[in-house]
Simulated scan of single mutants.
Amino acid sequence: MKNFNRPLILASNSPRRQELLKAAGFNFKVRTSEVDETYPSDLPLHDIAKYLARKKAEAYIPHLKNEVLITADTIVKLKDEILEKPKDADEATKMLRALSGTDHEVITGVCIADKKLQVSLDDTTKVYFKTLTSNEIEYYVSQYEPFDKAGAYGIQEWIGMIGIRKIVGSYFNVVGLPIAKVYEVLMNFNQPKS
């Protein structure tokens, strides 16, 4: 992006986050490493995504020079339960059955940081699923293998197109990055033109 003049690093393997950042006009490098994604058991559910995004950032910050770093984590909250990434088809099927005919929250936490400053934010979107049939769930799980997605679904995929009745909040947040909020914070990390 012409008016962002610092090297940008996205610390995420998520192709969806990469697509969103690219579509918003940013040039960036992807850098990833394994980070322990455990969190304190007494942490309020709404704070988990932001906590994990900060934890991921802390692993990279010591190695930054002039770069700006983006880390993120997305969780699916169904009532008082967190639906993480499913381990296999059975778990994905169970998650989609639980989401069927109800609403849930998708919360994405983001940390944007450089050597001196760290800004954390989060965004919540409420998602309403229609009642899904067993055939719809089985077809989606077998064809799309949503094992890299919290809650076992991608809103931009077939199940989102046929199964989601409405959302309240940011669509892009459900995809994996609340890009409008991220853009706003990134502009504060820009260096003034000399």
Rank of each mutant, 00 (worst) to 15 (best):
H104F: 13
A59Y: 07
D47A: 12
D42T: 09
D80S: 13
I48H: 02
D36Y: 13
Y51D: 07
M95D: 04
E91C: 04
A113L: 13
M95H: 04
K85F: 02
C111F: 04
I75N: 09
V106H: 13
L69R: 01
K87L: 15
N27A: 06
D47M: 08
L52R: 11
A24K: 08
A57T: 00
K79C: 03
D88P: 03
I82H: 06
M95A: 05
N27D: 14
T93D: 10
D47V: 04
E81P: 02
T38L: 07
D47E: 14
K50W: 00
D114A: 10
T38V: 14
E91F: 04
A24H: 09
R31H: 09
C111L: 05
L45P: 12
Y39T: 10
A72Q: 00
T32C: 15
A92H: 03
K87S: 14
K65T: 09
G109R: 01
H46S: 11
K29E: 12
D88R: 02
Y39I: 10
S41C: 10
P62T: 15
L52I: 15
D114N: 14
E105M: 05
L83E: 01
K94A: 12
L117C: 03
G25L: 14
N27T: 15
D36K: 14
V68T: 14
A98R: 15
I75M: 09
K79L: 05
S41R: 11
K94E: 11
K56S: 08
A89F: 05
I75V: 06
T93R: 11
E91I: 02
A72D: 04
Y51M: 13
D88Y: 03
A72E: 04
R97Q: 15
V76Q: 04
L45N: 10
A98C: 12
